[in-house]
Amino acid sequence: MTVQRKAGYIQSLPKYLTLCERNYANVLRILPEQQSRGASRLLDIRHERYQVDIEQTAKYTTDICITQVRGAIAGMFTPPMNVRIYHDARVAEVVHPDYHSRIKPTYGYPNANMHQKDEKYQVNAFLHDWLTFCISHGEAVLDWDCGSDLV
């Protein structure tokens, strides 16, 4: 009698990189005009307000934090999203707020912290959905740069 082991979750790297490339193209559209440390921008989306703060800048990366300032329902706010933008690779991904810790690509399931098997993909898919929502509702200014290969 042979016992078969169930295969674990394996993340699709091409699918993940495509998602991060789309996030890069969209996150550039909501950045403050002045892209230096401490710059911020307010976004009004329907009855909610978000603030995009540039926390760190380096030659090839920019770290931003997206925070909900005002919600449609009093007292209900979404947690802040910390996003690292890699300009050389043209990708953007959600990172752990404590930069020394990180979101793992996969988690065993079940686990003590109740992470999903594909937690990293899901938080970045949420960023993609949120950015798409911002842009589709016309509240984020679209700075079209036809020479950047993003259009």
Rank of each mutant, 00 (worst) to 15 (best):
T2S: 12
T2I: 14
V3H: 09
Q4I: 09
K6Y: 05
K6P: 00
A7K: 09
G8M: 07
G8W: 09
G8I: 06
Y9D: 03
I10L: 07
L13E: 12
L13P: 07
P14A: 05
K15M: 08
Y16E: 07
Y16V: 01
L17Y: 12
L17N: 08
T18E: 15
T18G: 05
T18C: 07
L19V: 12
L19Y: 09
L19H: 03
E21I: 09
E21N: 06
R22M: 14
A25P: 03
L28Y: 07
L28C: 12
I30K: 00
I30Y: 00
L31R: 06
P32V: 00
E33N: 06
E33C: 01
Q34N: 02
S36I: 13
R37E: 15
A39Y: 00
A39L: 03
S40M: 05
R41L: 11
R41Q: 11
D44L: 08
D44S: 12
R49M: 10
Y50D: 08
V52M: 01
I54V: 10
E55W: 04
E55C: 03
T57Y: 04
K59C: 03
K59D: 07
K59E: 10
Y60G: 02
T61Y: 15
T61D: 11
T62R: 14
C65K: 14
I66T: 05
I66E: 01
Q68K: 05
Q68W: 00
Q68D: 08
V69K: 05
R70D: 03
I73V: 11
I73C: 05
M76H: 06
M76P: 01
F77A: 01
F77H: 02
P80T: 05
P80Y: 04
M81L: 13
R84T: 06
I85C: 14
I85S: 14
I85G: 11
H87N: 10
D88L: 10
A89F: 09
A92Y: 13
A92Q: 12
E93N: 13
E93D: 12
V94Y: 14
H96V: 12
P97Q: 07
P97R: 10
Y99W: 09
Y99Q: 15
I103T: 14
K104Q: 15
T106A: 09
T106Y: 05
T106G: 00
T106P: 00
Y109G: 07
P110N: 14
N113G: 03
M114S: 08
H115D: 10
H115W: 13
D118A: 05
E119N: 07
E119W: 07
F126T: 11
L127S: 01
L127V: 02
D129Y: 07
D129I: 03
T132N: 12
T132I: 09
F133E: 04
S136C: 09
E139N: 01
E139D: 08
E139M: 02
E139K: 03
E139L: 01
A140K: 02
L142D: 11
D143L: 14
D143M: 08
W144C: 09
W144Q: 11
W144T: 13
G147M: 06
G147H: 11
